[in-house]
Nucleic acid binder design. Sequence first.
DNA 1: ACAAAAGTGTTGAGAGTACACCCATGC
DNA 2: GCATGGGTGTACTCTCAACACTTTTGT
Lengths: 231, 231
Amino acid sequence: MPTSSNGQFRGHAIAVDVVLFTIQGGTLKALLVKRRQPPHRGAWALPGGIVGTDESVDDAALRELQEETNIGNIYLEQLYTFGEPARDPRGRVITVAYYALVNWQQFQLKARQRVTEADWFPVKRLPPLAFDHRRIVDYALERLQHKINYTTVAFQLLPRQFTLTELQGSYEVILSQRLDKRNFRRKMLQLGILKGTREFKAHGRQRPARLYTFTEPKVVKLQEKGIIVPF
Amino acid sequence: MPTSSNGQFRGHAIAVDVVLFTIQGGTLKALLVKRRQPPHRGAWALPGGIVGTDESVDDAALRELQEETNIGNIYLEQLYTFGEPARDPRGRVITVAYYALVNWQQFQLKARQRVTEADWFPVKRLPPLAFDHRRIVDYALERLQHKINYTTVAFQLLPRQFTLTELQGSYEVILSQRLDKRNFRRKMLQLGILKGTREFKAHGRQRPARLYTFTEPKVVKLQEKGIIVPF
DNA sequence: ACAAAAGTGTTGAGAGTACACCCATGC
DNA sequence: GCATGGGTGTACTCTCAACACTTTTGT
């Protein structure tokens, strides 16, 4: 098997790249890290790295995520494998892209003592990205927008207890689309996967909102019906 | 980078495996090849092989397909990447799985002078498969069943001109489900992607059926509405 | 004339969509 | 008492789903 230009890899190298989404301040954001090695040194890139010899590709993605974030138990889903020979100038690197969803509050609590420089960027205003990472983000967003309609992935972006307005907000942010409040609530409650608690969330001088919890194990695949309800 | 047990691979090897579907005699079938090397020598497996150093992963899948079938211009779609360390006993082989669809008549015309032993098997009655190939087939079928509802992939299984009954038949075979003729026809024609020709297909002593052609470039993503209409 | 598949409409049920006002709280 | 987001119901439209008979051909 051949050697790449700088001799670092023999044969193929397999990398994982993870698009980690969160919602903060009403905006959908993705985590980027600043590259410390060439190529694209100093450029922003997706968190990721080379898959170890004895770990599964999924495990490598989880590991990268944990190195960057210190959060466990993250929703992670494989996206697509990008295998163009020229995508990495160092040689043949095939990347398996993933996307992941975290709740911002959980993240804020745990993420400290960082090694590499990392930051959240609004998905709509990303800086130029290294490699083909821009394409990966676009692909991830597309998948998320699609999947939110027939699964409950959106719940992964929320805390354990949330108000229906918060849930609706996460749909709106992901879809870049206003939804109708009454229809959204009816549809969500009809699904039978939400349980109203007896707690309320007071935020200032308004009427407090009821908190709900999600009743199912993790992510539910709904009956392919779709949740989009335009405003 | 480490070496695998038999020294054949350095670092990771990347393979592609392709689930090639066709419909023949009212049955959904997949192409399998008989392995000539260990491991699993003599077992049936998906067509596939190692990705070359300077070819893209997609190209490798196409190449494998053409080696096995002699057909060009096949509908091919990446499925998923399987990256468990133990999936191949020779060492670390990560496989990128694809599925592909061909029309049986075209295949029959071109496929000759085969190198490896290969055969079509009904997807519902596959022999034991090498590696984790059974899982890949299951995954491919699931994807196909899902995708047939909001895209026009099913057309890839038919000749250029086809009757509505043949089209319905391909949906039924893929979904393992009878569909209602009137509803199916109305829905298909409403989509505006079919053009009736002035030709008819006569088969014996029944009324001849009108032949239709598909008007769009290749595969159309429909409005996420779904085509399933139970019988 | 009959066997076999082609072809064709209507109706009822349920989901989707549009839309506007009162409620509870903090200040 | 007022500003702010929380919360609720109804009518119309349209798609989905169920269902059976006539037509055309070859033998």
